[in-house]
Write a protein that binds this DNA or RNA. Structure first.
Length: 657
DNA sequence: TTAGGGTTAG
């Protein structure tokens, strides 16, 4: 099959059409503003009337003046907030506005998601020296909300005053901005730097960072380090912190640890709220411990809290994970009665659990029920069923449902796109595969590890090995490490189509990744490299992995290299062969000498080789010996005579012993 | 005078 489309941003080697401009056009539209109401604004303008003053009215006048100035500032704040031309209204009112007024406007813009105005105002404030700590902390917070963590870092890094830079409010908002934008690692690094520069972190700082560990692999152990640190700094755990830690435990499936935090928290006098309860329930769901879950819900009720929608939905999750499908159905009915099953989530939980337990028909029945009841859906239910069909190898049904999704919904995210991609790939629908990839491009959704994995597997299945190769290069350049099984079969196929250097590059991706690598792969790539004449690379493979390569393969490599490899490396190769326990045979030695005879300028290498061989106890056979003698004028007669006589003595002593 | 929070689905 031939792929005519190729090249674009997300998949530079696969899609052809240039990135459609519609995305950037839409994303650059200014945020919608509230309607401008000039009539209201006009009413709020206060005219200051200057009256003649008598001593008796002076005090009142001052008060009036004060309140007048307050009122005029308040009016100016409104004017600026409602103005459609921020620059000119700042020019007009900026002079009477105090820093706190400007901060109020800044927060107003932030709360209204008026990002361009927000930045314009902050710039103006900086240019006019009208900023305070609050301006920075608010502005940085809103930069985080508008997904501009780099801009926030830039603002922070440009702060020159040291005490401002280690101000806990500003530091907390920068860290929060990084964490909420998925940059936990850089947040932690910056945190360390801030401490070195004199920041005294408080509970908010720690909670901000801890939040980042909820959705991170091995987040629990990392969060423990922070907890230790904050305790060491004399800070106490608060109810928010317990809430975050419970969520960390739940997402790491640590129900015992969650339980222990929950009890600690109560012991310390904090009353658990529904968030705490639901996190602990969620932790129980990972092991399907419905007894403990039931007990906990009872406890919650007796403490006077009424289980809400989330609590009951999470309880349903526990039942599903515990395999209690009848009980799950009863609870779902209860949720329905309470009006808590208006959206698809509880159905999704049950469907997914049924499908994963191999009860696909029952899952399908729930899916039908959900559609008949016109439950509000964002497409999750489709995603779950598409995956379920793929899992059961019902690719045709998966494909149909993916098409159905596309017809009904216009909302995509990465997981759903991957699910559809997988369905189309497994069903062998090339056009639909390309269509999904274009869609991903258009929506500027970055492919992840799974996307690449699905595509590479599919391209291999279609024997589009070079396309698969380019996809893997993309994958690798995005920092994803392909898994061994995929690489291994891929290397095999690349070898078969004589794409030797591509095979080597895949081998190296695996070799220099953190993934484990099966020993047999070294020999596999060695054969490919020899076949492709990439002997120098083959040499590196043998040198680094001689213990994992069979004698036969080493021999094959040796004779290929000595015959055709770089002459300057022949002696090194001999040494590596010998070092790996391979006995250099007469044929190989003869071949090496023959090559040197053709290139007499390499005579130093011949002498070195002969000398080394004597040292290792190798005997020169008679054929080779005669060939050397015949050509000894090329190398220097005397030296050769000396070396050969040394050899002769050695061979005699070997024979006699 | 400004910073932090946690719960459910693919």
């Amino acid at each position: 099959m031939e792929i005519s489309v190729n090249l674009s941003t997300r998949f530079p080697h696969i899609l052809s059409s240039p990135l459609p401009s519609s995305f950037s056009a839409v994303s650059s539209l200014p945020a919608l503003r509230p309607p401008h109401n000039s009539a209201t604004a006009a009413k709020t303008i206060i005219t200051i009337v200057v009256k003649e003053q008598t001593p008796a009215t002076a005090l009142i006048s001052r008060r009036n003046h004060k309140s007048n100035s307050y009122l005029s500032r308040k009016s100016a704040v409104l004017q600026v907030q409602q103005s459609s031309d921020l620059a000119s209204s700042l020019q007009r009112f900026g002079g009477i506005l105090k820093v706190q007024d400007l901060n109020a406007i800044l927060r107003h813009f932030g709360e209204q998601n008026r990002w361009p105005d927000l930045s314009q105002l902050f710039n103006w404030m900086q240019q006019h020296g009208k900023t305070s700590v609050s301006s920075y902390s608010s502005y940085i917070k809103f930069l985080g909300k508008s997904l501009k963590p780099l801009k926030a870092l830039e603002i922070y890094n440009n702060i020159t005053d040291e005490s401002t830079k280690t101000n806990v409010f500003i530091c907390n908002s920068v860290l929060s901005c990084l964490v909420r934008n998925g940059k936990l690692d850089s947040g932690i690094k910056l945190f360390d730097k801030m401490k070195q520069n004199g920041l005294t972190p408080d509970a908010v700082t720690y909670n901000t960072l801890l939040t980042g560990f909820i959705k991170v692999k091995r987040g629990y152990s990392k969060s423990l380090e922070l907890v230790q640190e904050l305790k060491h700094n004399g800070l106490q755990m608060d109810s928010v912190m317990y809430g975050i830690l419970l969520a960390v435990c739940a997402s790491n499936s640590l129900h015992e640890e969650a339980e222990s935090y929950f009890n600690c928290m109560k012991d310390e006098g904090h009353s658990p709220n529904p968030f705490h309860y639901s996190s602990l329930l969620n932790a129980y769901s990972s092991v399907g411990n419905y007894e403990k879950a039931d007990e906990l819900v009872q406890e919650m009720k007796s403490s006077g809290l009424v289980p809400n929608k989330v609590i009951l939905t999470t309880l349903l999750k526990v039942y599903v994970r515990g395999g209690l499908f009848d009980k799950s159905r009863e609870l779902l009915a209860e949720l329905d009665t309470l009006g808590y099953a208006e959206d698809e989530m509880p159905y999704c939980l049950l469907m997914d659990g049924l499908a994963k337990a191999g009860r696909l028909d029952e899952a399908k029945a729930v899916f039908s029920e959900l559609q008949e009841k016109s439950v509000k859906s964002d497409g999750y239910a489709h995603g779950i069923m598409i995956s379920a069909f793929c899992r059961s190898k019902l690719f045709e049904e998966a494909k149909q449902l993916a098409k159905d999704f596309e017809a009904k919904f216009n909302k995509y995210d990465l997981v759903l796109l991957n699910t559809m991609l997988s369905a189309y790939c497994r069903a062998g629908e090339m056009e639909s595969v390309m269509h999904v990839m274009k869609k991903m491009n258009k929506l500027a959704i970055c492919p992840d590890y799974y996307t690449f994995h699905i595509l590479i597997k599919y391209f291999c299945k279609e024997k589009l090995y070079l396309l698969a190769y380019r996809t893997m290069v993309d994958m690798h350049s995005k920092g994803h490490q392909p898994e061994e099984e995929l690489c291994s079969s891929f290397i095999f196929h690349l070898g078969k189509i004589r794409a030797h250097s591509e095979a080597l590059s895949v081998y190296n991706m695996l070799r220099y990744s953190k993934r484990t690598m099966c020993k047999a792969l070294h020999e596999k790539i060695l054969h490919i490299l020899i076949a492709g004449g990439l002997l120098k690379d083959a040499y590196v493979v043998v040198k680094d992995n001689s213990g994992s390569i069979s004698r036969a393969a080493v021999k094959k490599f040796g004779s290929a290299f000595v015959r055709l490899g770089n002459i300057n490396l022949v002696n090194d190769v001999m040494k590596v062969l010998h070092g790996s326990g391979y006995k250099i045979d007469e044929g190989l030695f003869h071949m090496a000498i023959s090559r040197y005879i053709v290139e007499p300028e390499k005579k130093e290498l011949v002498l070195q080789l002969l000398d080394w061989m004597s040292g290792q106890g190798y005997v020169v056979d008679s054929t080779t010996r005669n060939m050397i003698l015949k050509n000894s004028h090329l190398f220097g007669r005397q030296v050769i005579a000396d070396l050969l006589s040394k050899q002769h003595v050695m061979s005699k002593s070997l024979r006699s012993s």
